[in-house]
Design a protein around this nucleic acid. Sequence first.
DNA 1: AATTATCTCCCTGAAAAACAGGATATTTAA
DNA 2: TTAAATATCCTGTTTTTCAGGGAGATAATT
Lengths: 192, 192
Amino acid sequence: MVIEGIRSLLQQEQDVEWMGHAMNADSCLAFLKQQQPDIVLMDINLPGKSGIDLCKEVKEKYPSVFIIGLSTFNQQSFIQKMMENGASGYVLKNASREELLEAINTVIKGKIYLSDEVSQAMKHTHSENIILTRREKEVLELIAEGMTNNVIAQKLFISVTTVDTHRKNLLAKFDVKNTALLIRTATQLQII
Amino acid sequence: MVIEGIRSLLQQEQDVEWMGHAMNADSCLAFLKQQQPDIVLMDINLPGKSGIDLCKEVKEKYPSVFIIGLSTFNQQSFIQKMMENGASGYVLKNASREELLEAINTVIKGKIYLSDEVSQAMKHTHSENIILTRREKEVLELIAEGMTNNVIAQKLFISVTTVDTHRKNLLAKFDVKNTALLIRTATQLQII
DNA sequence: AATTATCTCCCTGAAAAACAGGATATTTAA
DNA sequence: TTAAATATCCTGTTTTTCAGGGAGATAATT
């Protein structure tokens, strides 16, 4: 619905040509193999692979394709990651038609577009850039599923003490002191 | 952007007349004072008052106006509340144009429209049975803020053992076995 | 070649949570 | 007016988490 909405919105513009759309990461990559548009509007919330990861992959394979991130919420952590992964802009879904067109016109020139609302959210960032390692992310997800260190250790074929270490590092990185706050902030930052 | 998208999408239909749009609850109510459409598409995530509350208010004042809930996520708790408050349908924003039109055509006849995806999410709900007491909700929120039983006890002027009891009851009601899962499911169900 | 990051494993001891199985007032609602 | 729900408190034991260290192996960067 959102896709078709944006499409019929953009098709009213003569300067903009709609080349197609994809509903998930794989079909997006398949599409880009066939043809490369100037700009890709990319939703953050995709089924399976996140828009953030897809952004990185697309930029690595097709550096000339400009990417504009799309999301409902003004989530600073997302915006930042998206930009780090090579996006040229970020637009909220509640943005106006004019704003979207402005974003496209800015990005096509090779410039960065961030709306006032978005760039303000970027400044209000006390939630530092929490970067987790692959293992830490793994452990965090298993903790969130209610597993104890012992169970996690068996699952990952590592020692309980190692799991404990990862857990301690997670607490340190999130700057929290127990599991409750860990899970809460992690969900709030949409990391899990 | 989403509004304008849906608008230009619906304006292609001869059977549908677009009467206007509102960006928040107040301007929606002001709009309805002037004129009442057959159907209102209502986003759940509004600035300030939630779509759920607005839905109730609109239905009380204008019972003949049918409301279709709109949201990005398939959040069972939201859908249920929305329907309880008098909505006639619920559509996800990733729904197709056809689905939206089907929803409109169903609802205008006075029937209820729920897409397969949505009604499935409604069935997968063992969650509606979870009713917390005032005290339990209080304790749950303090747990989510990272407090230990001891701190909570001091804060609420009750014994640590009492807090422990509430905690045990919370685990039982949510059918989970530790804090991590408690916080996770509670946040997922939007209880905290 | 040296630093850094990541993953791995270990220790001690303390704190907290989970589990089991009670009891007793006080509201609330049928 | 009872029965049910709620809130309060207790004694234990076991399990898990947290705090604060150290330390080796490997791989990636500088």
